Structure formats: structure tokens, C-alpha cells
Computed example of a mutant assay.
Amino acid sequence: MRVEIWSDIACPWCYVGKARFDKALAGFAHRDQVEVVHRSFELDPHRPKDDVEPVLALLTRKYGMSQAQAEAGEDHLGAQAAAEGLEYRTRGRDHGNTFDMHRLLHFAKTRGLQAALLDVLYRANFAEERSVFTEGPERLVELAAKAGLDAEDARAVLADPAAYADEVRADEEEAARLGATGVPFFVLDRKYGVSGAQPVEVFTQALTQAWAEHTPLRLIDQGQQAQACGPDGCAVPRG
């Protein structure tokens, strides 16, 4: 069974939602038979690379919040993250363009390290003091190497603006076709969709339901073969 997860590194609910989904998957009896694929979704795709903004300033500007409301919202997110065992800096984070990170994630997928890089990027953005936006490509190269990727290979990907760009755009176009207007967005076997950082129990229910429809039909042991019709005709009783 395949689970596809559309998310963005700049999305705090994606950070929390992944942790909740991972908990549900860890407790799922058939977890070893579930393939998880992470797909790209940019919250701010038109933001120039050099346009980096403090998160609190973004919240007050974009959503019309007061400073106190923005800080309260970040405190709430910090509490939600802590409940899942995640570190979360409620002050001092910034926001920027994530396109290069998504390109690196597609490269990491070719090396079997996509999930590892995603975890590294999430932690760097939400828990660490150093920014993933202001230090340039070498910061991303450093994080890619931390996830197990070859630093020179990662550097070459970042130096080529076309590398894995089509893959990122294809993910985003697919998300639009599926009706995703926000992230995280989970799609199970292309039959069920789960939107948002749902509780662990919701993910468990979705995995169970999708698995029930994914698995082949099991025939009840009837002992002697019953009469039936097939491509070669029908079984005719012989006297």
C-alpha cells in the first residue's frame, strides 16, 4: 500500500502532522508493507529566494494578527509539537522560499534518503537556531550531508536550477488535481485523502480502512471445490 504525503518545510503543521502519522504507522500491523512517498508543495512559491521574513512579522502582515496574537499562535504550535516529542522554537524563526529544499528532497529520493533529509530539514527549520534560508546553498549542503547524502552531489544539484525542478512542479500540479488546497495532505492508495495534522487515531483509522480495501480477497476454505463457471466453461455434474 502506498501513502503519499504533500508537505512543505515551512509548514509547522506538516512538521507536527508527520510526527503523528509516523506514530500511527509505527503501531500499524502492516507497516512493513506500506510505502511512504513525500511529495512537494510550496506554501509561498512566488517568494523570491532572497526575500526572507521573520515568522511573527509574516503572521501579522499576512493574517492581520496583532503581535500578541501571533506570539500566542506560535506558543500554541510549540505546545502541539512538544506533545509529539518535537522541539519547536516559538521565537526567532524566519520564513522564505523552499523550492531548493524540495529539489534536494527529490534528489534524496533517488538515494533512498528522502525521509531522512525531510527530518533533518524539519528539525533545522523548526528547532535549530541557525536559519535554513539566510546562509545560502552551503547551509543546505551541510544538512544534506547530515542526512547521509554526498555533499558534492548535493552541491551540484543546488548549482543547477533545472535539477529536479520538473519533479517539484509535477508534485504540485498533482496536488492541485487531487484537490489539495493546503498541507499536510495525505493520500492513501489514491482512494482516501486526509487533510491536516489529524490526531494519531484518525491516521490509524485511515490506514486500517485503506488496507482493508487494498489487500486481495481471501477465499474461505470450503474443503471440496464447489461448482462454478469460468473461462473454460461450467462444471457439469457427472452421474
Score class of each variant (00 low, 15 high):
35 E>L: 11
14 C>N: 02
54 P>I: 01
183 V>D: 01
238 R>D: 15
173 E>W: 07
81 A>R: 04
75 D>F: 11
48 P>H: 03
9 I>E: 02
6 W>Y: 05
227 Q>I: 14
11 C>A: 06
90 T>V: 14
34 V>K: 03
157 V>I: 08
225 Q>A: 15
212 A>Q: 12
9 I>W: 01
12 P>K: 01
170 A>R: 03
25 L>D: 03
112 G>T: 00
189 D>W: 10
222 Q>P: 09
178 L>N: 06
81 A>Y: 03
52 V>K: 00
192 Y>D: 04
193 G>M: 08
136 G>S: 12
227 Q>E: 15
13 W>A: 05
69 Q>M: 12
67 Q>D: 14
163 A>L: 08
61 R>C: 04
113 L>C: 05
76 H>P: 12
108 A>I: 01
119 D>G: 02
69 Q>C: 14
18 K>P: 01
127 A>Y: 03
100 D>A: 03
236 V>F: 13
97 N>E: 09
193 G>F: 07
70 A>H: 07
229 C>Q: 14
123 R>N: 08
80 Q>A: 10
224 Q>K: 13
142 E>S: 10
161 P>V: 05
180 A>T: 00
137 P>N: 04
109 K>R: 11
229 C>D: 10
50 D>K: 09
233 G>E: 02
192 Y>S: 09
232 D>F: 13
55 V>H: 08
118 L>K: 12
221 D>G: 10
25 L>V: 03
165 A>I: 07
227 Q>W: 14
92 G>K: 01
205 Q>L: 11
125 N>C: 02
156 A>P: 08
161 P>C: 00
152 E>V: 14
76 H>Y: 15
218 R>P: 09
222 Q>W: 12
127 A>I: 04
3 V>F: 04
29 A>P: 13
66 S>Y: 12
208 T>N: 12
74 E>C: 07
231 P>M: 12
125 N>M: 04
205 Q>M: 12
216 P>Y: 03
71 E>I: 12
40 S>N: 10
72 A>T: 10
128 E>D: 05
219 L>G: 14
55 V>D: 11
131 S>D: 04
11 C>M: 02
228 A>E: 11
131 S>M: 01
147 A>L: 01
101 M>L: 09
96 G>Y: 00
203 F>G: 08
186 F>N: 00
61 R>F: 13
6 W>G: 01
40 S>W: 00
62 K>I: 08
206 A>P: 03
134 T>C: 07
139 R>E: 11
156 A>D: 13
